[in-house]
């Protein structure tokens, strides 16, 4: 206290100092000191287990969330995909080209540097190919684990099918590649070129 107590208060405090000064019993001293020493022998990192458990639960929750179809449709996941033919007007390349407005050079450059989404990987490969499929690009949509119907041109051409399988594998699309491989089983060796 910053203020000095007055003499009357000092007298009270002096009296209090002269009062008996009881102390805790010896058995309490012994018990408390023993408890203090026992606490030191306990491992210090006991908080680590609950923290790790919490982190594991969080990781699982995030994974589950990413597996939800709604989240995958935004382009995050690749596990479940399905081939889906594009609408007829989009399948015809010339009309699609006509319909699209002319793009500037910078726009094309920007598109070239932009990371490709999964559907685009499917689309770009046929365009680079000189096969008939290049004129009829197929769009695919990831939805579930089913194998989509394979376009007839692709189903009849073993070499083309093998090339597409290789492209899909290179793009990391194992499920789609496996779907096409199922078609390969039904084609004669060598196929049609």
């Amino acid at each position: 206290m910053s203020e000095r107590p007055d003499p009357g208060d000092e007298r009270i405090l002096d009296l209090y100092r002269r009062a008996p000064r009881p102390e805790p019993p010896q058995r309490l001293d012994t018990a408390i000191r023993a408890a203090a020493r026992a606490e030191l022998r306990r491992p210090r990192r006991q908080w680590l287990l609950p923290a790790l458990a919490t982190a594991a639960v969080l990781v699982l929750a995030v994974n589950l969330l990413l597996e939800l179809p709604g989240v995958q449709d935004k382009g995050a996941g690749r596990a479940r995909t399905r081939y889906e033919p594009a609408a007829p007007e989009a399948q015809a390349l010339p009309s699609a080209v006509k319909a699209s407005p002319p793009r500037s050079e910078t726009g094309r450059q920007r598109e070239a540097t932009r990371p490709l989404s999964v559907p685009e990987v499917f689309e770009v490969a046929p365009r680079a190919s000189p096969t008939p499929l290049a004129r009829e690009p197929t769009r695919y949509r990831m939805e579930d684990g089913e194998c989509p119907p394979v376009p007839p041109e692709l189903a009849a051409d073993r070499a083309l099918l093998e090339r597409r399988v290789a492209e899909l594998l290179e793009a990391g699309l194992r499920h789609e590649a496996e779907c096409l491989l199922l078609q390969l089983d039904g084609l004669p060796p060598g196929g049609e070129e």
């Binding site: 001293d29 408390i32 000191r33 203090a36 020493r37 030191l40």
Partner: peptide
């Protein structure tokens, strides 16, 4: 542990 004893 001795520090605790002093404090106690």
């Amino acid at each position: 542990a001795d520090a605790f004893d002093t404090l106690y």
